[in-house]
Design a protein around this nucleic acid. Structure first.
Lengths: 234, 234
DNA sequence: ACTAATTTGTTCGTATGTATG
DNA sequence: ACATACATACGAACAAATTAG
């Protein structure tokens, strides 16, 4: 085992047990070098590997910092943002930019099983993990089925809660479509990333009983999330 | 632009235009250093980055080698891909750039449940739909479990066929992780897209009985593919 | 607004270990 | 056994960016 490897392992373990919370600055390289009794290069080799793994990032002149670990987001039949994030030990949250009710477009109506022009609620906002933006969302609901949803969305903390308040007890993800796009200036600004960075785009359709209740469009900051598929085990 | 960056760019370009065929050994670091008029460390910094990108790999005492290049070996894709594409009324296909056997890296070994350094087979190539590239793939197999796989991959039309010839009757996808990245120059060239375009990256792990048999990394041209998740219906 | 100190990034030099052929 | 070539590690210096005062 080389020196840089054991140093990397040690730092990895200390990060794992939360010695430095995310965003914290590590001691300077010179200090770490002194602590481990090695040359600065050797510490840099270790921190470089950890940076490759996404645990750290460095800013010239500023220091080396603990990175907020990218979130694993499982795409299952019952996709619940708040629950998913909370289960991974992080703090879920969201802001809502707009809630409006308007006639549906053709694609929306078809997806939700409505007549074209039927009213839909549309909510747009930002999903947060540990108070940092990870995704933009646009969710669309049939207004006839959920007349009180806009009010509930404002009152409740999570979409699931709002739907529950409207009587929707258990809805299931029917299908998910995934692709990727480049962030434009507006998306980048909202997600606090750079224009040209990669976005994961998911398009989900959920059902409750015999009705489609939600069409969810989500643009994820790819650098902050990994979508995972829990396959059936044998 | 730092020295190592311009050197990396130069080497990347030379690799891209096929100056060194796949498997070729690059000139020794000392020679490259002399050619670029820099210290050996500076060359190493450049080659390290290129190795991270998957263009190169180095073997201690042997040299630095080209990992992949556009040399076509027409074989078919994995069963699911093949079937899915065929079912959608399109023509599936693929090319293989390289099949090689080399010591595993840490991440690979861990994923496949091997000792670091244990031999693995690595196949790299391009997946085609209607004779147009849609994805780059790198698949990794434990060599001890599948000693004849490279020969079988060349002989058989599909991965499934090759694995079957190695005694692997039915393997299961254990997990899939999805994220997105930006295409670099080499990836863009292979996929016939533009550098900076979005790539969907999937990372799959498959099991056969109690052994991991395949780690599959795939970079999809996001503009040409949408991954869909058919959720189980209740 | 400017300066100085701090801190990471890059580059050189040098030496030794270890695997390959 | 031997030369070659990559891997690791130390030391030194300066550049570039950030931060503190």
């Amino acid at each position: 085992m080389s020196l840089w490897q054991s140093i990397a392992d040690q730092l990895r373990a200390e990060i794992a047990r939360g010695k430095w919370p995310p965003g914290t600055r590590l001691p300077p390289e010179t200090e770490l070098a002194a602590r481990f009794g090695v040359n600065r290069h050797t510490v840099r080799h270790a921190t470089r590997v950890l940076a490759d793994e996404g645990l750290l990032y460095s800013r010239r002149g500023a220091g080396v910092f603990i990175a907020a670990s990218p979130v694993d987001y499982p795409l299952s039949e019952r996709v619940r943002f708040h629950r998913n994030i909370a289960l991974s030990g992080k703090v879920p949250g969201r802001t809502i930019d707009t809630i409006m009710t308007r006639p549906s477009g053709e694609v929306e109506a078809h997806a939700l099983g409505l007549e074209p022009g039927a009213l839909v609620h549309v909510a747009e906002g930002i999903s947060l993990v540990d108070f940092k933006p990870v995704a933009l969302f646009r969710t669309i609901y049939p207004a006839d089925l959920l007349p009180e949803l806009p009010a509930m969305l404002r009152r409740e903390e999570s979409v699931t809660g709002a739907l529950l308040a409207c009587g929707v007890e258990d809805y299931q993800r029917l299908s998910t479509r995934i692709t990727a796009r480049i962030a434009d200036a507006v998306q980048a600004a909202k997600l606090q990333i750079e224009p040209g960075d990669a976005l994961l785009r998911t398009e989900g359709l959920s059902r409750w009983n015999e009705r489609m209740v939600e069409r969810a469009l989500t643009w994820w900051a790819a650098e902050r999330v990994t979508l995972t598929l829990p396959h059936v085990d044998s």
